[in-house]
Design a protein around this nucleic acid. Structure first.
Lengths: 103, 103
DNA sequence: GAAATTCATCGCAATATTACGATTATTAGG
DNA sequence: CCTAATAATCGTAATATTGCGATGAATTTC
């Protein structure tokens, strides 16, 4: 029917999938990489860096913010985006734990 | 227009996104977890374990096989699926490297 | 050769994602 | 108050994903 049967899976499985989805697009990867590089918060120069329109970038940022992997703080008239280290640790922990036994 | 502008991003960014996409669905996570648990190869009992139809499971397996994160070897009339440790290492390396500096 | 088993693939429907331009807040500065 | 700057949201269109039942291919067993 086209809808992801999230209800049929565990909370953990859904969370892991959600975290993975936050990086499951090259633009999202590029955003993360840029935020890592510029260390300090960055705002709409993401639009300059990415080969996408302002509205599209804004949508990606919203999606990533919903998952929690980035945060956005208003600094009128700009918005400053940062990586959420808490969630990055959650990410590495989840996958690290998952694959620790085998490789 | 709805198409992922993959051409506008680097090969590395696309590969990372691809790897993430392989885990960006709870069913895929469940498949990985089950393959980790049963260590040895598993076949169609994935269908018994997952709350999805045979055809849907087959599709997920195909997608994951395309990314390379699992392999399937024919053992008539069954097909035996295994994790590809090579690609799992690629996965952990990619994200480990990415986040090594910050957390 | 006729079932039975196992899995891939096809065809379809529903929903999600990606992308953009245009519009709408919000706020700073004149 | 008017304008410029910034970013979110809306509306729309195209494409991708998810899911299932039905069908098809390969192979074993009887």
């Amino acid at each position: 029917m086209g809808l992801s049967k999230t209800a049929a899976f565990s909370t953990e499985q859904n969370r892991i999938a959600e975290l993975a989805k936050a990086l499951a697009h090259p633009a999202r990867v590029a955003i993360i990489q840029h935020l890592l590089k510029t260390k300090a918060c960055v705002c709409g120069d993401l639009v300059d860096v990415l080969p996408l329109s302002q509205s599209t970038v804004s949508q990606h940022l919203k999606a990533m913010k919903n998952v929690g992997i980035i945060t956005g703080s208003v600094e009128p008239p700009k918005v400053c985006y940062c990586l959420n280290m808490e969630v990055l640790r959650e990410f590495t922990a989840a996958f690290g734990e998952m694959f620790s036994r085998c490789c």
